[in-house]
Nucleic acid binder design. Structure first.
Lengths: 254, 254
DNA sequence: CACAATTGTCTCGGATCCGAGACGATCCAC
DNA sequence: GTGGATCGTCTCGGATCCGAGACAATTGTG
């Protein structure tokens, strides 16, 4: 592949700054990337002039600038998650003959970004835009299982955090942790009747390159159809869809 | 200044994509920037491999990637607003002899990021991290005045949106709009006793390059000291501080 | 179905850039 | 106060890159 080294170096500098909680001196950037000192200053000049980097003159340090934030906001406005997920989720529905949906985590809620219906399958409550408590849904549990423990604790500081639905679901952090541990062991999350009585879902998380959960893919079926080999088949297909989505969102660097 | 054209072009491509609500074909990028076709493909290759751009193969289009979002998140983690504002706000306090603070808008709240105390001035409630309803504070009103009308309406959909404090402040969207209009005319926002009885504040917004409010700077004084010429002096100093902060956050492109 | 348009990849040589190193200014340690 | 270390800018020549244009594959149109 053709190399565009100056562009790649500019990204290196931005990513270096983004890995640091505080602004850093130019000498550290040059040393750690490593890049020639004069090249680093040239790059910083351009990045500063475009607002991607802020020069803290008094501290003689450099940090990310507001243009970096603007890029992040623009990314969110393009709704890329649902856009990228549409094809794989459609194929999952076609292949499995079941309803599927795609959701992301927002605090203690899951928010549904996409739902694809299979013929003759029951209507779901998981319409686009709907929010449900994460710990009560397969998608939510799949994503929570991929979060670091301290972050889960921060989300669920006390027993009041655990809303109920149909009298089911974890009621404490201990119960939730146990559920998340089992989810990690199984490689997927499952709920039976917690969201909708007589319906079950299996879900897997879509992870970014840092193994953080971006979203989750779930397949829903009637609970009476929940034979182990059937469930295993659906989990496998959901995993394939999740992997496909992950690859499109965060390509492996070459 | 030394030019690093490939780095600048890479930023051009990212900004072009961020200006579009939908992914775009490579031909549009080449035509509109304008850049040579082969150069655009080279840049897209690098940006895709690093996750800044996503190639929507089926649509033959390109959109921003999750790495753009990660940069934006990293920017927020560095808390650059308070970092950049500290010096100018400290100088404002030194020059005016009054307390000053710096806040940003979060939904219908202002959240205080920085407070600098002057000797022998009264303690304020606006400690770092404190949230107050925006429409009741000078800083909040200054930032709301810089928002487009539809965005203000979205923030305040009904009368229940208008919390009260000490029985003062706007009670309806009509009253709020009137206040914001006066604020735009005056060039600053003022509150007298709404946050703390017997204390007044004047505030001005810190605007980014798109004239959107990033934050606000406010000076607080005893209401009995509120003679017009004194207030005008404080407003002028607050404006200078706001301008200084804005220049550091979003340098004018060359 | 045939042709035109577009997309994406690839080559290679002239033009341009990158980076070593010099320099002046500023900061820091003793 | 002095000398060393660091920062930020600048020059310029050899090495590298950029981009015109060819090509094959795919898509769109009549």
């Amino acid at each position: 592949m053709p190399n565009v080294p100056a562009a790649a170096s500019a990204l290196d500098v931005l990513e270096y700054l983004s890995r640091h909680a505080e602004p850093v001196p130019a000498a550290s950037i040059a040393r750690d990337l490593p890049l020639p000192r004069s090249s680093v200053y040239h790059l910083l000049k351009v990045l500063c002039s475009r607002g991607y980097v802020t020069h803290y003159v008094e501290d003689r340090r450099f940090g990310l600038g507001s243009a970096a934030y603007e890029l992040g906001s623009a990314y969110q406005r393009q709704a890329p998650l649902a856009r990228v997920a549409r094809g794989p989720v459609r194929r999952l529905v076609d292949q499995s003959g079941r309803n599927a949906h795609f959701a992301t985590l927002d605090g203690r809620d899951v928010i549904y970004l996409l739902e694809e219906r299979a013929p003759s399958q029951p209507t779901l409550v998981t319409d686009v835009g709907v929010r449900l408590p994460a710990h009560l849904t397969a998608s939510g549990v799949a994503m929570l299982a991929a979060l670091p423990g301290p972050q889960v604790r921060a989300l669920y500081p006390d027993r009041d955090s655990f809303t109920q639905r149909h009298g089911t679901g974890p009621r404490s952090l201990t119960e939730l942790r146990s559920l998340l541990s089992r989810t990690r062991t199984d490689g997927f999350a499952r709920e039976d009747g917690t969201v909708t009585p007589e319906l079950s879902s299996v879900a897997v998380a879509v992870l970014d390159r840092a193994e953080r959960p971006l979203a989750a893919v779930a397949v829903t079926f009637r609970s009476v159809d929940g034979q182990p080999e059937h469930v295993a088949d659906l989990v496998g297909r959901a995993k394939a869809a999740a992997g496909d989505i992950a690859r499109r969102l965060s390509p492996t660097p070459r």
